[in-house]
């Protein structure tokens, strides 16, 4: 069934100008609280987009609602001009590291091959070709030597790289990453940033929840600023301004801007 889904995935030709992701009227409520209100946004084609905003601004909620992991109150999500449900095979996802149990009895390669399951299909065995693809993905994040290591024995940064490798193994057009740089060591940060640039060079789109304003300008092309609703969006140089930062973060942000 998933294989059928995958062949239905549709990418329009590059000159058609259809955005990889188009969100309209997206609102999400948690119990009585409105976590996101009426977000309308069209992602640029190709490139790295940082989703920024203060704590509790709804950054992760935005990602989860777009991916259908939380049910939005209202709104539609289109991937390359088609409803998300038809385009799942074009999507790659790096969840927050804390979202899983790292004591789980699997090794790094097992986790990375999970990124291939969609291509393998229901009830079929994982073949050598998929394991090789998993090894290549591990190699890209510098983790090939740890393929057989149980995931609980990896450091936090290594675990994050395994999650990134799993997303690479998905061979997606559009990536969603939830704080991939949170709490990782310097070597891991360099590796992840290098992979992000590779993805960008390959023409893929990466939408990345990011907490560290200091590194946004150096790494990302576009920015989506949220604070319970869309505050500002556009190229980093035009958007990460003092005025917008104050809008999103309040007065606390004065002095945070790197572009003034």
């Amino acid at each position: 069934m998933l294989q059928r889904l995958r062949t239905r995935n549709f990418i329009p030709p590059a000159d058609a100008g259809v955005s990889p992701l188009s969100v309209s009227g997206l609102s999400v409520a948690y119990h009585r609280q409105l976590a996101l209100h009426d977000v309308n946004w069209t992602a640029p084609t190709g490139g790295l987009v940082a989703v920024v905003g203060p704590n509790g601004a709804g950054k992760s909620t935005f990602l989860k609602a777009v991916l259908g992991l939380v049910t939005p109150l209202a709104g539609t999500v289109e991937v390359y001009g088609r409803p998300l449900a038809q385009q799942r095979g074009l999507i790659g996802y790096v969840p927050q590291r804390e979202s899983v149990d790292w004591d789980f009895p699997v090794n790094a390669l097992d986790v990375v091959t999970m990124g291939r399951y969609g291509m393998i299909g229901w009830g079929r065995r994982i073949t050598g070709a998929h394991k090789r693809a998993g090894m290549e993905a591990l190699d890209r994040v510098g983790m090939a030597d740890y393929a057989r290591r149980q995931i609980g024995q990896l450091s936090g940064g290594q675990q994050q790289r395994v999650f990134l490798a799993r997303a690479l193994a998905q061979e997606a057009r559009l990536y969603f990453m939830d704080e991939p740089l949170a709490g990782v060591d310097a070597a891991t940060e360099q590796t992840i940033l290098a992979v992000l640039r590779e993805l960008e060079a390959e023409g893929r789109t990466v939408i990345c929840v990011h907490h560290d304003l200091q590194t946004v300008a150096a790494t990302f092309d576009h920015v989506l600023m949220l604070n319970r609703t869309l505050v500002a969006t556009g190229p980093v140089a035009d958007t990460l301004t003092d005025a917008n930062l104050r809008l999103a973060y309040g007065q606390r942000a004065s002095g945070l801007s790197l572009l003034s």
Binding site: L67, A85, I91, G115
Partner: peptide, 8 residues
């Protein structure tokens, strides 16, 4: 969560 995002 990953499984759902991948369409399973």
């Amino acid at each position: 969560g990953f499984a759902r995002a991948a369409g399973w």
